[in-house]
């Protein structure tokens, strides 16, 4: 029973990071129809920036963390302004291929760039948390994992309130639902795109610094992360925020269970098998968006 609780908690921690990544992808896909293959590389880059700031330059962890996340968000805005924005035009299919190739190219540049700067040997971020686990009703909780879970939940909650209650959030949702109509009533859709791309990459960056603090940081860590985030997005329903969050936790917990009870080697395949199974029963995912996919 205690192992089961332990597996679920581990799954929830990983799942929280998946949910952050998937929410970022959903925002970018929902507004710009961009399947962002460089998402995991933003996640990797933020983890390396945190490593650089805290381990190499000696900046305190809780100062370095927001700096790393904001810098990667700024890079996301630059990428949207200089690259993604120029790919519009042509048929929908061509746009899908053009944005895929452009973001794949970007991911190759970032991944190999990181390898040139930091090398291929995995790095550890020194963490300010005590290593002594907190015992709670017989279940051991490591403080860093608790920090990851709580931070993710707080950020997702703030994001949800921001999207529902603030003017900027309403503008983003309006553009999300119908781009042409939003432009027609005078919303600056182009600037909303930049804001959303920056915000989406910041969510990936946050997942990166959080998981980077608990595990190791290396240049190729983004590859599998991107794929997992896609899985979550499809699992939950493309373009749906509740779906992305639910899908993230579902994938995290099912992977953790699979590793514990089936086989650690097959852990990474489970998510993809679950996706095929879900899509056979519900071709639009678990909690599909109300928005019509154009």
């Amino acid at each position: 029973m205690e192992t089961l609780v332990q597996q679920v908690l581990d799954g929830l921690m990983i799942g929280a990071a998946y949910a952050l990544m998937a929410t970022g992808l959903t925002i970018i896909f929902g507004l710009m129809d961009v399947v962002n293959f460089a998402h995991g590389e933003f996640y990797m880059l933020a983890a390396f920036l945190l490593f650089q700031l805290s381990a190499v330059m000696g900046v305190p962890y809780f100062v370095a963390l927001p700096v790393a996340v904001l810098s990667v968000g700024a890079l996301g805005v630059v990428v949207q302004r200089t690259l993604v924005r120029r790919l519009r035009g042509g048929s929908r299919l061509n746009y899908l291929y053009a944005t895929s190739i452009a973001t794949i190219g970007l991911s190759i540049v970032l991944q190999n760039g990181a390898q040139l700067v930091w090398g291929a040997v995995p790095k550890s971020i020194p963490q300010p948390f005590p290593t002594e686990p907190i015992l709670l009703a017989g279940v051991a909780l490591s403080p860093v994992r608790l920090f990851i879970l709580l931070t993710s939940i707080v950020v997702i909650a703030v994001l949800g309130i921001g999207l529902m209650r603030t003017l900027a959030g309403r503008m983003v949702r309006a553009t999300f639902q119908d781009r042409e109509a939003a432009a027609l009533i005078g919303l600056p859709v182009d600037r909303i795109d930049a804001l959303a791309f920056g915000g989406g990459t910041m969510l990936a960056a946050l997942a990166g610094v959080l998981l980077g603090s608990a595990f190791q940081v290396y240049p190729t860590m983004g590859g599998l992360a991107t794929l997992k985030a896609f899985t979550v997005v499809i699992l939950g329903g493309m373009g749906s925020f509740p779906g992305a969050i639910a899908g993230g936790f579902l994938l995290g917990v099912s992977e953790s269970m699979a590793a514990g009870y089936i086989s650690a080697g097959l852990k990474d395949a489970i998510g993809f098998a679950v996706v095929v199974a879900v899509l056979m029963i519900r071709p639009t995912g678990l909690l599909p968006a109300v928005r019509r996919l154009r």
């Binding site: 896909f29 399947v35 794929l227 896609f230 899985t231 997005v233 499809i234 493309m238 086989s263 080697g265 097959l266 990474d268 395949a269 993809f272 098998a273 996706v275 095929v276 899509l279 071709p283 639009t284 995912g285 996919l293």
Partner: peptide, 22 residues
């Protein structure tokens, strides 16, 4: 169709990869 087709086909590839390993 669309992105669902992309990810579903990709899922088959990934499952095949892990089956080949295991």
């Amino acid at each position: 169709r669309g992105p669902y087709f992309v990810i579903a086909t990709f899922s088959f590839l990934t499952v095949a990869y892990y089956v080949a390993i295991n």
